[in-house]
Nucleic acid binder design. Structure first.
Lengths: 294, 294
DNA sequence: ATTATGTTGTACATTTATTATACAAGCCGC
DNA sequence: GCGGCTTGTATAATAAATGTACAACATAAT
């Protein structure tokens, strides 16, 4: 997995920005630093393409390039905070956040979340802290250790913050589109949400549909969106069979769509015909799965 | 958010006012003072855009600019005044937003929402545009004009943005706490959400619990939060009796809590014993209800 | 070797700002 | 109707930002 892929010509045609302009932007505003190959030629990544698309969109809207650049810098700040990666501290913070949520103290909870975003990377906070707490709260609720009230309140705040992050990633047209939806009769969206977050973070435009749809609706979506990837989530064993059936049906009608199925029901032993749909359980597996199909 | 964003060109296209005119207004009437960047260029905020929109609307109606300016200066409560009229333009925006949502075009949808926040007040956008669309989408779904997929997708985005706004209001620590929850067997949270938004806007700290809780959980919440106000939402007639029962039970155990019940089931003829809980249907009624019990 | 595509500088034209002043069209009081 | 005021727009002089072009050279591929 090499870092840079696109040369300046490719970037120019992809983004519609002249090569000279690209170099000028790089020289004048510190928003781009493509790596160089042995010959000193610029090599841009997907991340760069997205930034450029976003910038050129802002310029189209009437902003000057310098304004757009400074907007991007603000927007980006938290992401570049590599300072205190991992470490035990962020578990203490999650612990404190959980306590605040369980005593319905929203002010404190929001303060802690803000602190988390200041200290750790976006991925870390959203996936490990926020989504992690969603999982824990779900478990606490199922075992009856907390009430539905605790669960509703905490879930609302956590999901709202995750949504804020998710919807504020600059996603733009270069990369193919993705649809994420729960399998038939599936109501647990959490795993799918985390997955969606991850895929968005990579820059894909994800149409997140959440809990399961009525029979046939998924075809309307694929017809409208024309995605390259479709992800189904299946957590309960009994639902695996209809989910596979659905995947097969879609595959038949839209052979070009890459279909993946994730969730607890896909772990362990699965039927032969399910193997082609396995995406894996870790972020690295997901990443490999995506990039091997690009 | 940041201080100034829009340059004069962007403002001109957003408001339809010529750059020269913008400068003249600034020079002649002290209604605008955009900050300047290092180069001395004007940078306008969302607030400015809204003021200008309002002014230009007044001018369109026949007022002179100096009159409009003094009107603005007189009742200088920025948040509440130039929102009421709104006009037909924001319906066009809502219309366009709906279309974007129904074709799963999130990028366009988010862009339109951002534009809405620039042009109109927070209340207007959240309550009229976003919540308004939630209602319409609910209706479209119930009549079968759109699929569950459309409904899931649009609802997720709209609620996420509403949540962003709701959770970012500062709560005033001095004001008493409020709990908002749906009555027994109630699943329509939308009205409650709008109400919560309104109460938060007044500065109260609201514990929003949403759809109905398991029997008895509400007592855990009141025990923990010790709110001064408790709001129940009841939209279906059949659920009114259990809701009233619940209210009575709470009243018996916590006589100091003011309980209100809202929603469609409380409109029209209601049982005698329900009258004490009526909060009304309009924002003004809500406001009176709250302030009469402070 | 030739061609295509890079690179770094520098230079220049264009666009977009800025201020200050001027002016024509419209409205109002006398 | 006339003079004065308001108000939108136009102009000129100036400055900065920004896109693009060119020269001189380096590398890769055919």
């Amino acid at each position: 997995m090499s870092e840079g892929k696109y040369n300046i010509k490719a970037v120019s045609t992809l983004t519609g920005i002249q090569p000279g302009t690209l170099r000028a932007w790089e020289r004048r505003y510190s928003i781009l630093e493509p790596v160089r190959n042995e010959a000193g030629h610029r090599l841009y990544t997907d991340e760069h393409i997205r930034k450029l698309k976003w910038l050129s969109e802002k310029v189209q809207q009437g902003f000057t390039i310098s304004q757009a650049a400074s907007l991007l810098e603000q927007h980006d700040e938290p992401a570049h905070n590599y300072l205190a990666e991992a470490g035990p501290r962020h578990e203490a913070l999650a612990e404190e956040l959980l306590r605040a949520l369980l005593r319905f103290d929203e002010a404190k909870a929001q303060e802690l979340i803000n602190k988390a975003f200041a200290l750790y990377t976006i991925d870390n906070v959203t996936i490990n802290i926020l989504a992690g707490l969603l999982v824990r709260i779900g478990a606490l609720w199922e075992t009856g250790e907390i009430t539905t009230a605790h669960e509703h309140f905490a879930t609302s705040i956590l999901r709202s913050r995750i949504g804020m992050v998710m919807h504020s990633f600059p996603h733009n047209g270069v990369l193919p589109k993705v649809v994420a939806v729960c399998g038939p009769n599936e109501w647990h969206e959490l795993g799918l949400l985390i997955f969606t977050l991850f895929v968005r973070r990579l820059g894909y435009e994800v149409v997140y549909l959440g809990a399961s749809l009525k029979e046939g609706d998924i075809f309307v979506v694929t017809e409208t969106v024309k995605p390259k990837f479709l992800f189904l989530s299946c957590t309960i064993r009994e639902n695996l069979e209809p989910t596979l059936q659905l995947a097969d049906d879609i595959k038949k009608q839209y052979p070009d769509i890459h279909i993946g199925i994730g969730g607890a029901a896909m772990s362990g032993a699965v039927p032969e015909r399910a193997l082609q749909y396995v995406v894996g359980n870790t972020q690295n597996e997901w990443k490999d799965w995506m990039s091997s199909r690009m």
